[in-house]
């Protein structure tokens, strides 16, 4: 299936005509599938996987339960003549024929555009009202605001990002959704400091009950939303970003109290950025990768890849492929901090 957006982004100025488009179509598809072909040994039904990666995704919104209920949001969409379809989670609504941002409930901050799999990690972390939670790579805030809703907008949610432009988007989303329990910090998550939030006069740093580590990644799983996301793919980029991911996850485990929970997630398939990162941190920090419940079809984490073998516990992580549930691709692991 030719993708118009890819064709447009690749068409050189002045290029035109059926012949040229055919050339570009072929090159783009080979490029995308060249990258994804490396995962053929991991994927159960590679043809279905390949076909799913080439289909666009429907618009999905999450209901913001800080400001309303799922019932009232559905009613407000119905009033506006917008049809919805159910998703894997009650609070997610697919809008097959509508732009998620052009309706009254959106204007009231009742809805937030968020892909179905993007709602997985906060639901897995499932913080309680009153908890102290860190979102290590927070902008633009879809998962941050979901965490705040799960906390009933109570407790303290520290949201960190290293990019001021993206922090501006995070602030805007948090304000539109009426989140009042978030404190936003600008720093490199690998060096996250607990100091700004130490209570007055406290001599010890205050650790977190839970942390979400939804790291920057090669984004292979977002290919349905951004068809050209794989055009710049290189193995050296994957390996480079994996080093950053290891640093952020280690810092999150260190900053979380023994008995606390850390969720690690990416929107990519590369084991270098997923199971290899878990394997590294299992070797360096006192923690375990534990089983998690997920009401979505998925595959277990892989324990062998490209001549490497990983700690068997990484099989407890979940791989969500696009053809499993007609979503984007995702990876999610639940980690318990065991203490020194």
């Amino acid at each position: 299936m030719p993708d118009r957006r890819v064709l447009q982004s690749h068409a050189a100025p002045g290029a035109g005509g059926a012949e040229n488009e055919g050339v570009f179509t072929g090159r783009v598809h080979r490029t995308r599938m060249d990258v994804l072909a490396r995962y053929e040994p991991l994927v159960d039904d590679f043809e279905a996987f390949r076909a799913a990666c080439e289909r666009p995704l429907p618009s999905v919104v999450r209901v913001n339960t800080i400001k309303t209920t799922v019932e009232r949001a559905r009613e407000a969409l119905d009033e506006s003549g917008i049809g919805v379809e159910a998703c894997w989670h009650d609070e997610l609504l697919a809008l097959p024929d509508a732009q998620p941002g052009r309706n009254w409930p959106y204007v009231h901050g009742w809805l937030h555009g968020q892909e179905e799999v993007s709602a997985v990690p906060a639901a897995v972390l499932d913080p309680a009202p009153g908890d102290r939670v860190w979102d290590a790579c927070a902008a633009p805030g879809s998962k941050t605001t979901q965490l705040a809703a799960l906390m009933d907008d109570r407790g303290t949610l520290v949201a960190t990002d290293n990019n001021l432009g993206r922090i501006s988007a995070l602030r805007s989303n948090a304000e539109r959704l009426g989140v009042t329990n978030v404190a936003i910090t600008h720093e490199d998550a690998r060096n996250h400091s607990l100091k700004p939030f130490a209570a007055d006069g406290a001599t010890e740093d205050v650790e977190y009950d839970a942390a979400l580590v939804d790291v920057p990644c090669s984004c292979e799983g977002t290919v349905r939303k951004n068809p050209d996301t794989l055009d710049e793919w290189t193995l050296s980029h994957v390996e480079g970003i994996a080093g950053v991911q290891k640093g952020i996850l280690r810092r999150a485990v260190q900053a979380t109290r023994p008995g606390g929970t850390v969720v690690y997630s990416t929107c990519t398939f590369a084991p270098e950025e997923n199971e290899a990162v878990l394997d590294h941190v299992l070797g360096e920090e006192p923690c375990e990768v534990v089983l998690l419940d997920l009401p979505l079809a998925h595959a277990p984490g892989v324990t062998e890849w490209d001549g490497e073998s990983y700690d068997p516990a990484v099989a407890n992580a979940k791989r969500i492929y696009p053809h499993h549930n007609d979503t984007g691709g995702f990876f999610c692991a639940k980690i318990e901090v065991t203490g020194a």
Binding site: T156, L164, T180, A183, I184, T185, H186, F197, D200
Partner: peptide, 17 residues
């Protein structure tokens, strides 16, 4: 307006709404 806990003053990018 902020629902969480923080010492004062604090030099960060955002604190509630």
């Amino acid at each position: 307006a902020f629902a969480g806990e923080s010492p004062s003053p604090v030099d960060i990018e955002g604190l509630g709404v």
